[in-house]
Amino acid sequence: MEEGNKDNGENGIVLTEEQRKRRRARSIAIGLALGALVLLFYAVTIVKLGPGILRRPM
């Protein structure tokens, strides 16, 4: 186990400051990647299907 981690029973492992910082950076990167994918899928859908998808007959 990484030096500096403490197992304090009920609460599990307590992360070191460095581990906490890196986990936060990873979380932000995953969030940004997911956000970029949402935008990409939206743009690709519009380009492939066109705005006409909203004007289909009922």
């Binding site: 186990m1 990484e2 581990q19 950076a25």
Partner: peptide, 10 residues
């Protein structure tokens, strides 16, 4: 064994 906290950065 518990998974070690990762030190991997972006």
């Amino acid at each position: 064994s518990r998974a070690e906290p990762s030190l991997a950065g972006v």
